[in-house]
Design a protein around this nucleic acid. Structure first.
Lengths: 108, 108
DNA sequence: TTTGACTTGTCGCTTTACGACAAATTTATA
DNA sequence: TATAAATTTGTCGTAAAGCGACAAGTCAAA
């Protein structure tokens, strides 16, 4: 288990044998900033997930799961919020998808 | 099931028989902004959860669950992210709590 | 048709996000 | 151990997001 998404990137980078500067270039990121990300002092920019996936030939959906689970865990942890919120969130996602389907029917 | 946290506030407000202006005053919020919140056009400010809890005598932890589940659901839904992230997030929260405990021991 | 409740649009300030560069520190290797 | 590369840390400036405020609009009740 990794403490944060940055550790995951670091692992990928090391496995790929890249320096911070090399990987940074591929991700349009300063090596200094990439370092902070890997060490959990800054968050990876959500908008760059696609680039990361293509550099390492990763499934974007798996990557999103890794990334967002991190964001969510941090949010709950920092706010001292019960993980009950996760159960409720799952229901809500289902509900949002359902009403979106209905709305699409209406739009047609 | 409510579409968003704003609907939840609206329900509380109606049950309490308040106008937007009245509840807004209690929450230090403009009636216009409260209206937007109730209609999902703006998010309720996380920092005001305490006030909301005390106005309606709600358990702050329940309220947090309601609030953060909403944030999380929206994030997953908007990003087309699998709810697998929720399972992973739960593991991560456990892990964060565990390493925090260990760190506390070291600090002592 | 006036009044109160609610909604919508928009402005401006504050906070946060984030890329960039400089400088310090660590690590590797000749 | 000298030095060069790799990594880390500090900080700045701009960009974007968050959010309160006010004005002007709609809508419903009397």
């Amino acid at each position: 288990m990794k403490k944060h998404f940055g550790e995951y990137i670091k692992q990928l980078r090391n496995e790929g044998g890249f320096t911070l500067t090399q990987l940074g270039a591929k991700l349009d990121l300063d090596s200094a900033n990439l370092s902070k990300i890997e060490n959990g002092k800054r968050d990876f920019n959500e908008k760059s997930l696609g680039k990361l996936a293509s550099v390492f030939k990763l499934d974007i959906n798996k990557l999103k799961t890794e990334f967002f689970s991190d964001i969510i865990a941090k949010k709950l942890y920092q706010n001292g919020c019960s993980t009950d919120a996760l159960i409720v969130a799952e229901e809500k996602v289902k509900y949002l998808k359902k009403i979106n389907l209905k709305q699409t029917e209406v739009d047609l």
